[in-house]
Design a protein around this nucleic acid. Structure first.
Lengths: 236, 236
DNA sequence: AATATTAATAGTTGTTTTGACATTTAATAT
DNA sequence: ATATTAAATGTCAAAACAACTATTAATATT
């Protein structure tokens, strides 16, 4: 199957930036690298692409290995191709970010990889260019979440408004007025209020909500600015 | 330099989606493929990544080969990794879009590649998954241009407001009210009015403008929506 | 029974942004 | 002098927005 002659072939890897949310803060899942070089240093979860799998396939495989989860929200970020980025051998890495419900993860076991959740703020130094990759991933979810409702992917099926607001506040490192927040939220019509309350966080308790999946999928597009009515246009 | 054992290596290519603007419509630069398979079919300009160059380096090299231009606006879009996307041999392709001033190009010669500008609307069918790549590139520039002033990269140093408006109208396939357009444009403070006029398009002539480069670079970030004052936040 | 705590709601206000809309002006050709 | 053509300009009302005050709800603590 080698038919293009005189060309060099390279290793191709995928690396996953896995985000979770504990109700208070954004977290990232890291593993202790199990082999040399940089053995026992913290690293993203990754793996080499195999001959018969696509990039998305490889990313999903790696993620399932690490978390036991399937059907996770996963999105390609970009390819890193500096010739020297891996000191052992030139390897192209395609990064993905994953948004998972951290509670689903906790029931899984992955001691095998020495995986650990870190607060995004005080994550340890990472091998190779993984630190740079994480920075790019943070930028990307900020960018995307400002226009699309992806952050719901980090929450459990049932969640409360204060949780959701904490999430937005943590992602954007800001304080949000909760009346204005609720007003905008209501306008999206994406939430369905449940009868049940979460009483763990307060005496009064906060009502649980769930996503209206249909509207979530239908309204995943959003509006933009320079252009009048850009939301109409972007879906074209 | 092969040290990761038992792993498969792959060809890596870059493919460039080159956009230009003729004053009326968005155009795309395509080439006639010079070798089998699919010889003489229309294709994106691409090339294999060499051992010592980065992805960006490869994309720039390919682009310079095709256009003679250097320092062009070039941005990575995404990696395509379907195992069967190239029938000859599995090849990963990393796509880039380029925005060039079509007039700078026209002085160049690239008969060697049988390159040709096509109106985006009636571009021919392309080989492999290149058609899909072009669609993704169109989406990406629409998305990005709604938030960032990248479309200026398509214009010559001196340009007129009607040209600029044509460009936006063509990219978004819409009509824009020209008073509102100018108002928003003025608000960006990105333009500097010149004394000279372009009289080719009308009797009255339209004033030329140029970009305020400093402000262009400084204000490349933009605003978003769900979050109050998101422009402040995104630059953090 | 009073108090403290967090969630939830109502709604006001002033500002900014938006979309819709029609006329005048400048340069040239006739 | 007049006609022609595209460029340039201003106003208004509605909507969206951020900032803010006040109150009610439900419970646990004392």
């Amino acid at each position: 199957m080698r038919k293009y002659i005189d060309q060099t072939r390279f290793l191709i890897a995928v690396d996953c930036i896995v985000f979770g949310f504990d109700g208070e803060h954004l977290k990232i899942l890291l593993i202790k690298r199990g082999f040399e070089p940089e053995k026992d240093k913290w690293s993203l979860m990754g793996g080499f692409v195999r001959p018969e799998e696509s990039l998305d396939g490889a990313a999903n495989r790696v993620l399932t290995q690490l978390t036991g989860l399937e059907g996770v929200y996963l999105e390609q970020i970009q390819a890193y191709g500096d010739p020297l980025r891996d000191p052992i051998e030139r390897t192209l890495s395609v990064t993905y970010f994953a948004l998972i419900d951290i509670h689903k993860y906790e029931t899984q076991i992955s001691d095998q990889y020495h995986a650990e959740w870190f607060l995004l703020k005080d994550a340890p130094e990472l091998i190779f260019d993984h630190g740079e990759m994480v920075e790019a991933a943070k930028k990307k979810i900020r960018y995307k979440a400002a226009l699309h409702p992806i952050l719901f992917e980090l929450l459990p099926k049932k969640f409360t408004i204060p949780q959701l607001q904490n999430l937005y506040e943590d992602v954007y490192n800001t304080q949000i007025d909760n009346r204005n927040f609720i007003r905008k939220l209501t306008a999206t019509k994406l939430l369905i209020k449940l009868a049940e309350k979460d009483k763990s966080g307060s005496k009064k308790g906060a009502f649980y909500f769930k996503l209206d999946k249909k509207k979530y999928k239908a309204n995943f597009q959003a509006f933009l600015n320079f252009i009048p009515n850009p939301d109409k246009l972007l879906t074209v």
